[in-house]
Design a protein around this nucleic acid. Structure first.
Ligand SMILES: [Mn+2]
Ligand SMILES: [Mn+2]
Ligand SMILES: [Mn+2]
Ligand SMILES: [Mn+2]
Lengths: 218, 218
DNA sequence: ACATTATTTTAGTCTTGTCTAAAATAATAT
DNA sequence: ATATTATTTTAGACAAGACTAAAATAATGT
């Protein structure tokens, strides 16, 4: 149906337009896809021709319903494959992304339907991100940034805001994984750092870390 | 490392040079890949530049050891994915090929290593074809065409020579699947057709069929 | 041996997706 | 209001991988 390149542009726009009400800028897409603005302009014209996005010169772009459907399906495939890699093939959560970037472009509706079944219809990927259903709907989980907790509050770790290898490996090193209970013992006002309890360990984490960890308050 | 297109050419040459001692012809490759001879000439020059094949004008081509390694690895991936689709995702043997054609190009050594483990190190794919190991070696199974059996001989069905959807679905319809015991009850000399027993059923099959079914004699 | 046919290669073109450099437009600052 | 800067688009080029048509070479038949 569509080329891998087209799919990657749709996916980028899908992620970029979340939570913003104006069009996604050419430069934003270029940065996300590590390409040049001129290349983006070219592709954006093609996607517009195919009614996947709305595009007016200098105005940025937004997905049509059709485009949204295609894009969310790529995200769905990406996240299902990530679950597969972690649950069935012993990958760790910092190893799955690059492979999923390839697998998400495999074309076979039956494959994804059966994979979904095989995995037991997961709703979230290994990073806590929701998996869209066939219609693109996603089950929003109520979550807050760890940095928003105050002293003596606690919650379960349910996701990350930054999925980079570096950050995920850092969390592993500190013993922070999804499902763990975190309690805020102290909060330093001057730098926003937290002194937390996780398992039997107490540790101090910077504001940069707590701004990238999602918690389900309890 | 290599593009999907390059990998497809290498795989085609790999399959075509089995059992022949002279170079694989341009036309043979073109036919297998459903492309034009001129396109093949172009690609063959590139692969030759990269030391994947030996090519001299008008002489046909053959894989170098390096090319053979790359090609057998694609075949390995193709067949492991076919096993996965049948064993884990409820695909039937006539549905797996097209998806495997895509999956074989996914680049991740860890993925294949873990898939192999997950599947229990299978040696053959759903069509009875051997799965090359990491070094390209394949475990040859002794097998004969069903058409070579004589009256009252029998054997286990271990593979197909034709993996087309049509043929595989025909076999399903007749209840012929890998692992089944087949006994030749009668052999007609004038058309080579066989009257065989499989399970409790007796049926007649044409020479065209028996020429595409591999049997392990017993 | 030579004419005919089949195969392979070359030459030139096209599409996709990228790039650089330059031009056009929009946003911002004085 | 105008100058400066930032963003976006256009123009032109390139590489990969395909194609058609024509030329070159090899194979075959008489
Ligand atoms: Mn990912
Ligand atoms: Mn993810
Ligand atoms: Mn196959
Ligand atoms: Mn097979």
């Amino acid at each position: 149906m569509f080329t891998s390149s087209e799919e990657n542009y749709l996916k980028a726009i899908y992620h970029l337009e979340i939570g913003v009400d104006k069009g996604v800028s050419t430069n934003a897409i270029a940065e996300k896809l590590v390409t040049k603005a001129s290349s983006v302009t070219d592709m954006v014209k093609k996607l517009s021709e195919k009614e996947l996005i709305i595009y007016k010169k200098y105005q940025g772009v937004s997905l049509t319903n059709f485009g949204k459907k295609i894009a969310s399906n790529i995200v769905r495939k990406h996240r299902l494959w990530e679950v597969f890699l972690v649950e069935k093939l012993n990958f760790s959560w910092d190893e799955v992304h690059d492979v999923a970037e390839q697998l998400e472009h495999i074309k076979s509706p039956k494959l994804i339907q059966q994979l979904d079944l095989f995995l037991g219809f997961p709703t979230h990927d290994p990073h806590g991100d929701p998996i869209p259903d066939k219609d693109g709907n996603l089950k929003a989980i109520e979550k807050s940034l760890l940095s928003s907790l105050i002293k003596n509050e606690s919650g379960i770790c349910v996701g990350v805001n930054d999925s980079s290898k570096d950050f995920l490996q850092f969390l592993d090193k500190k013993g922070i994984t999804l499902g763990k209970l975190i309690t805020v013992l102290e909060k330093e006002d001057f730098d926003g750092s937290l002194f937390i309890q996780i398992d039997r360990k107490k540790l101090s984490i910077s504001n940069k870390i707590s701004n990238n960890l999602y918690i389900k308050k309890q």
